[in-house]
Computed example of a mutant assay.
Amino acid sequence: MKRALSAALLHPAAKPVLFVLCSLPLAWLVYGAVANQLGANPAEALIRRLGDWTMRGLWLTLAITPLRELTGLAALARMRRMLGVFSFVYASLHLLAYGWLDMGLALDDIARDIAKRPFILMGFTAWALMVPLALTSFNKAIKALGGKRWQALHKLVYAVGVIGLLHFIWMRAGKHNFAEPAIYGAILAVLLGWRLWKRLGARRASLG
């Protein structure tokens, strides 16, 4: 089973298949908008669903390393970069939809809204931190920065996850709806907790 999964992940078609899978939510949202199937408030539905897919993509990106180590499927690492880039794409579309559909692309109003509402500030901050990650997600950037500096920079993804979760929690706080943020928070706690446990274990081993 493990050999078959590894072979599938290494197959030349694996990345194109992942690209299609990552594109499907966007295609469905575009169809829903065109066909007027996003409910009574299509603008709000579009903004929120783009945000949901941003977080799902981020969480999947963060899940690659623990899944790779727990399953022994090293080929999973091939999928991490594309998942990360798609997370940024969805985050950028989420921001664009907010700026366009909610604020009419009025930059002064957007700036005031970011300064006034904490959950908007958190969302914008998370997106801003994703920008250098997206810009350095290519092989030339890795070579230019060097492996250690590139890895240090890309640890920003942990901050992005935490800040993005705060954005989600505060956004739902207005309607006292914390069930879904709690699920995302529990998953993030597991993903980051696993990394902390591994780091502490490595430190104890080096001291022992």
Rank of each mutant, 00 (worst) to 15 (best):
L76V: 05
L192V: 11
V34Y: 07
V30W: 13
Q151R: 13
G174S: 08
S92F: 01
L58N: 03
A111C: 06
P181F: 13
G72C: 10
L26H: 10
I187P: 01
L207M: 13
D52H: 03
G147I: 03
M1C: 12
G161K: 02
V20T: 12
A189Q: 04
H94S: 02
A4W: 09
L58E: 03
A182E: 01
L145D: 14
I142H: 15
G174N: 07
A179P: 01
L18W: 06
Q151I: 06
G84A: 05
V89K: 09
A35S: 13
S92Q: 01
R56N: 08
V162D: 01
T61R: 03
S23M: 13
P118H: 06
A14N: 02
L76P: 08
W59L: 01
T61N: 05
A179G: 05
S137T: 13
I187Y: 00
L18I: 06
A33S: 11
A63N: 10
A45L: 02
T54G: 00
N36C: 06
L165K: 03
R204W: 06
L58V: 04
G161D: 02
S206N: 05
E69L: 14
A144Y: 07
Y158Q: 10
A134Q: 08
S206P: 05
G146E: 06
L29G: 04
G193R: 13
A106N: 15
A97Y: 01
L188F: 08
A14Q: 02
M1S: 14
N36H: 14
G51A: 05
S87Y: 00
V20R: 15
V190P: 00
I110E: 01
V89T: 15
A159M: 02
S23G: 11
T71E: 09
F19I: 12
I183G: 03
A63K: 04
K140N: 09
F119L: 04
L24S: 02
L18H: 03
E69G: 11
F119N: 07
L121I: 01
A126H: 00
I183R: 08
